[in-house]
Design a protein around this nucleic acid. Structure first.
Lengths: 346, 346
DNA sequence: GTGAAAGCGCTAACAT
DNA sequence: ATGTTAGCGCTTTCAC
């Protein structure tokens, strides 16, 4: 192999439209039209240009295009907490749906630095981004300001319900109803002392799920006494701690509805450490339907979050907001109760 | 609230440098320098400009900047399989490290469409992207072409080891050695018939892990008979199926090293379904250290993948490649054997 | 220390 | 059907 000078290693600057134009013997404007497949052009030149572009390994420079069009074909996904195990799945479907619509996605994990999300709002406004997908309740204050000032920005919230009408479009499930369904199922199984392992008390989903629990108990004429409610976190270890503590001072419940699958995993581990059997000594149900829930010992009764539909619908909604200036609205998706052995006495 | 005309809803076009220049009573060039904090400028004007920018809610237009600088401050993360549960963690740290270096990340899930990755290679070359982080063995053929033609492109591979020297920088662990350590541990526990639930036979990590298993057996004078090797997939259900089948026709092994944690989860579930106890009837070990592995019943012996270090080091390496034209190289990180009860007879 | 001007690569209005 | 031209918003010489 011949020796090369250092500069040769960096490939010659990649071709621009002007280069392709020269090769194909047309003007840059024609190249642009040909590649975009826009009408006033002969099939023959279109082919010739396509050929030249392909051979030269040409790709449009996205920044030049975005600058000109004032549209970037990029959606930003704001993720408060990537450790949330709903994400891989959600993100996968978001990516897929966005790709199918011709968008690329940028992601930003906002838990790190609260100022970070504000920067992206500025970018959105400055034209660097076409839209924002919020995968949580949290919305940068700057955004809310603009919106309440009457701006119609391309933003969609998913995974988390809307705290209260705030002018942001959403794709969500009825969290309270879903929680109700779980507890209703437990009650119908004959459980009477149905406890709730709640999530962080300020989290909107935790609040909604707790409300569903209360309502179902009340509808079944059951008691939601304070010894039946434990506030924990959403993590495995939060559940484990609760499992180790639960009922130490008072009577054990006979079933526990956990605010999410992860805390249920921990709870079950904690109960087992104490020698209790699930579901025979105590039934357990979760919420989310993470993939591990099906192979847990015992398999976990839970609510299936329609992650794929959430992802797709929110991308589509965002696209509509970007491209068609549609009105804001909230879409409620169906959830599904998955009954597995953790809640069925055998 | 006063009624607005439709147009008023779209906020007035967001400010550009020219606007800020006008407000601050300077030229656009000065604004640019002031905001960048570049030398020949008085502290006083710098402040005045900063003030004006802040009040106007100014943000630079990333596309205009990228076009001018021929540098976008965007790294693309190519993800072959987002369902891989190593990702949330890895991605979180990648995002964090990139943010700290002033980069944004775009993600592209390549499993969907094999042509997709080629598009990004063109974009990389066209200046739309600064660099690419491959989170798998797979590398777009177009990339390999360029590289073997002598191009030094800013690309880093992580999570997966390099198949063979291919000119791409990497951040990885010694997969074979790590597998060796697991099997060595099992052998030292006194297990003699140590089986391997291997991953897909063409996957590079599966090959390396299998090789580690063979080597450790051989070093301990143990047999790696064909009845001790089962090829499966990396998913829970693959393991479960294996667990249901294992030893049906021949004697059961007394320990099984699974090529990843997920298949180990399934395997354990499958064994339990057959009434076998882990580890007393059969010991199990995995590879990856997913967060659930610690709360599994029993907690799973496994290898900790240094996901955070992988993420950070690969981002740093990519940055160096982009900004400093450093040579390609491979970094091997330390792994750690996590011994938990699934491999310790009680 | 600051301003004027050029130009990054592209697309769209207008001319031919 | 195709070419010419202007300009998107920014940074950076080069003058002053």
């Amino acid at each position: 192999m011949p020796k090369r000078k250092a500069e040769d290693n960096r490939l010659a600057r990649s071709p621009t439209m002007a280069d392709i134009a020269r090769i194909a013997g047309v003007s840059a404007a024609t190249v642009s039209r040909a590649l975009a497949g826009l009408p006033p052009i002969t099939e023959e030149t279109r082919l010739r240009v396509a050929q030249a572009a392909k051979e030269a390994g040409y790709a449009v420079n996205r920044h030049a295009r975005s600058l000109r069009l004032k549209r970037s074909k990029v959606m930003l996904v704001l993720i408060p907490n990537l450790a949330n195990p709903n994400f891989p799945d959600l993100l996968m479907h978001i990516d897929r749906a966005a790709y199918d619509c011709g968008y690329d996605i940028m992601i930003a994990h906002t838990a790190i630095d609260p100022h970070r999300s504000d920067r992206y709002v500025d970018e959105l406004l400055a034209g660097g981004l076409d839209g924002v997908l919020l995968t949580a309740n949290y919305c940068p204050p700057k955004l809310l300001e603009r919106i309440s000032a009457g701006a119609r920005l391309p933003i969609v919230r998913t995974l988390s319900p809307t705290p209260r009408p705030d002018g942001i479009s959403g794709v969500q499930i009825d969290e309270e109803k879903a929680a109700y369904d779980v507890v209703d199922h437990l009650a119908r199984q004959g459980y009477r002392r149905i406890a709730h392992l709640g999530g962080p008390p300020k989290e909107i989903v935790a609040i909604a799920r707790k409300r569903g629990w209360e309502k179902a108990l009340s509808d079944h004429g059951l008691d939601a006494g304070s010894d039946l409610y434990v506030s924990a976190g959403f993590l495995i270890n939060d559940g484990r701690r609760a499992g180790a503590e639960l009922g130490r001072s008072t009577a054990l419940p006979d079933a526990i509805f956990c605010s999410n699958d992860e805390s249920a995993y921990g709870l079950i581990a904690g109960l087992k450490e104490r020698g209790l059997r699930v579901p025979n000594d105590i039934a357990v149900a979760g919420f989310d339907d993470l993939s591990f829930s099906a192979v847990l010992d015992p398999p976990l009764t839970t609510v299936r979050l329609p992650r794929r539909e959430m992802a797709e619908k929110s991308v589509w909604k965002l696209r509509a907001l970007i491209e068609e200036d549609t009105p804001n609205d909230i879409t409620i998706l169906e959830h599904e109760l998955l009954i597995r052995s953790s809640s069925i006495r055998n």
